[in-house]
Nucleic acid binder design. Structure first.
Lengths: 368, 368
DNA sequence: CTGTTAGCGCTTTCAT
DNA sequence: ATGAAAGCGCTAACAG
């Protein structure tokens, strides 16, 4: 029974294509892989057969047979932070250009999940992995290096064989921001860090301290608070800062999400940005140009990072031997509307363009 | 030379594990797959060997041998729209719980890229695919159905064998929003749609029109503008609306990004939300509770969608035969601060909690 | 409960 | 330029 169905069930594979094109499977394989050792005429016949049969090569078999998976891993820590989707998109775009694929994994800042992610990468036999999480236990790194899988990190460790590193020039970026604030007359500059257990957060924090020192601006330690690189953390950290008897007149945040959360807290207290407090973010996510006011921030180009990361991995696989290298990305200050001239307390607070700060938001009915 | 290195180069595979554990490869395989037909003692020996050798099964070989890839595809249209990352995360979370993996593909609203994505899915032999893009050409659907790959769509087409559909109960969601505005006294209600070439956008638009009709609220056609489901589009659409001689007093947007963009445009004109115009979004992305003012919106639960989608696919693979089904997700109105009582033109505009609308933002120095 | 073995679909020598 | 055939690492009958 079901004779016809059984006929259709004929397995669709390279052999079937070979049969239809009346060549061997080797020739089909060569054609698919664009080998130049196939007669144009033959190749054409093969392509026709492929098209006619709607044949797609089985990537699993391909990977198994060749040892190369054409898959590149991308490990990120929080897909919910807009910084990363923009990065993922760029990475994917460039990978596709090179005929490679991307396996994205999200650790959610969780070391356990990180292990799972690494295993996934290993099991799928990725040809390289971009680890953009800034946190990774050494033994996991070994899993890759012992298998000769190229890696690229963001601001982590030293390049070595098969390990590349992308470093962000924080000093330059932060200096520009601090200089900008300084030019506007600010001296009471605060900082909302990321979670201090993250290396990346610590690096940004250090860069801030170093910059103040370079500019000879005194740091009031009580102007530094810890956030979590999310809006909630920025909000709460700012709220704590605002509860202090002495407040900073300008705030640099460890990333834009933090800055946006901080602005929310400022508004809730009936204060306004930048009239009462100037705010600078870090990253320049798409969103930042749409906040109210648009956020002044230090742009870190995701396309640049993605491109650099992918190329580092891809070229590691072409080169012999796989050389690790170090690449530098230069952040740039994007001036928008969340920073303004420092206005001494007691002076008439309203600038020409400023609103009636203090009564705009419901929670705190503080007026001037 | 390098004799020791060469020794390490011994291929790492199931056979090696078998050798170390002194069993057959079949037993190793059974142990890995948790078959109950292995003596506990033997299994233990195998596990030890696996651990000692740091062995990870090759997923490509696994997929090839078994015919199941344990991979589920997730096709989305814009990873840059916060709605999707939150969805991706939920989908991934539940997939991991079931021991399955996720292959994410981003079409960027581009039909060409959609083809690429489909091919990737096919080539990787996904066990099922969730298509959450609301646009898909029939012939691409065929590619999956002809291969008996279960699909699940969001608001698209009819369920049939192997095809499930998740429908959002728009009428209920939109009705709640319109009722809310109506209760606040609004009758001049506008709408900013998504790109009208997208089915999902059209559905939302239709739901809006239908809801007004049900509530017997007259629609002013000039109160409807088209956006692009991104902030930029929402901003521009709102700007156009504001240029009209007669303006709506409340706006419903096709998604939150649009609503946020729209609020930006409102602020730029020196107007304020909700005092001058009330705004309601759609989706309830994380961001929406942090905007200024926090956005009233119609929540569409991403975890619900993700869970439903994954289960539909997964069960399709367990069940015999693969049944398609229809699932309904109920949106709910989340009231925040971007909606307020309608205030007739000419009446004193300031509510107790309202700020001095009109001078807060620089571009337009309009004062009351 | 365990081992043997024949594939899965493709790549890649090695011949021709 | 093309074909034959030996794997790649694993699974899944089938035997025992």
């Amino acid at each position: 029974m079901h004779l016809q169905v059984e006929r259709q069930e004929r397995p669709m594979n390279i052999r079937e294509v070979a049969r239809v094109a009346r060549v061997s499977t080797a020739t089909v394989s060569r054609t698919i892989n664009g080998s130049d050792k196939v007669a144009p005429e033959t190749a054409e016949r093969v392509r026709e057969a492929i098209h006619k049969l709607k044949f797609y090569p089985n990537n699993n078999a391909r990977a198994l047979g060749s040892g190369r998976s054409s898959l590149y891993g991308l490990i990120i820590s929080d897909i919910t932070n807009p910084f990363f989707p923009e990065l993922v998109r760029s990475f994917e775009e460039i990978a596709v250009q090179y005929g490679q694929e991307v396996l994205v994994a999200n650790t959610n800042y969780d070391p356990i999940r990180m292990e799972t992610c690494v295993r996934r990468m290993l099991q799928r036999k990725v040809d390289g992995v971009a680890i953009l999480t800034s946190e990774m236990e050494a033994h996991l790194i070994d899993e890759f290096s012992s298998r000769r899988i190229p890696m690229v990190f963001l601001d982590m460790g030293v390049p070595s064989e098969g390990i590349s590193n992308i470093v962000l020039d924080y000093p330059a970026g932060v200096d520009a921001a601090v200089q900008h604030l300084s030019d506007l007359g600010h001296v009471d500059i605060g900082f909302i860090s990321g979670p201090m257990n993250l290396t990346s957060a610590r690096i940004r924090h250090q860069a801030f301290l170093a910059s103040l020192k370079r500019k000879r601006i005194r740091l009031n330690p009580s102007f530094v608070e810890e956030g979590d690189h999310r809006m909630g953390g920025g909000h709460d950290a700012m709220a704590r800062l605002l509860n202090r008897p002495v407040r900073p007149t300008a705030i640099l945040a460890s990333n834009d999400m933090t800055a946006i959360g901080a602005m929310g807290a400022i508004f809730e207290q009936g204060l306004s940005v930048p009239e009462d407090i100037s705010v600078i973010g870090f990253d320049d996510i798409d969103l930042s140009s749409f906040t109210q006011p648009p956020l002044t921030t230090i742009r870190v180009s995701r396309p640049d990072i993605a491109r650099t990361a992918f190329r580092a991995l891809y070229s590691s696989n072409q080169d012999t031997p796989p050389q690790g290298a170090e690449f530098t990305i230069h952040p740039t200050l994007i001036e928008r509307k969340s920073t303004g001239r420092m206005i001494p307390i007691g002076s008439p607070r309203r600038q020409q363009k400023s609103g009636d700060a203090g009564i705009r938001f419901g929670k705190a009915q503080i007026t001037g």
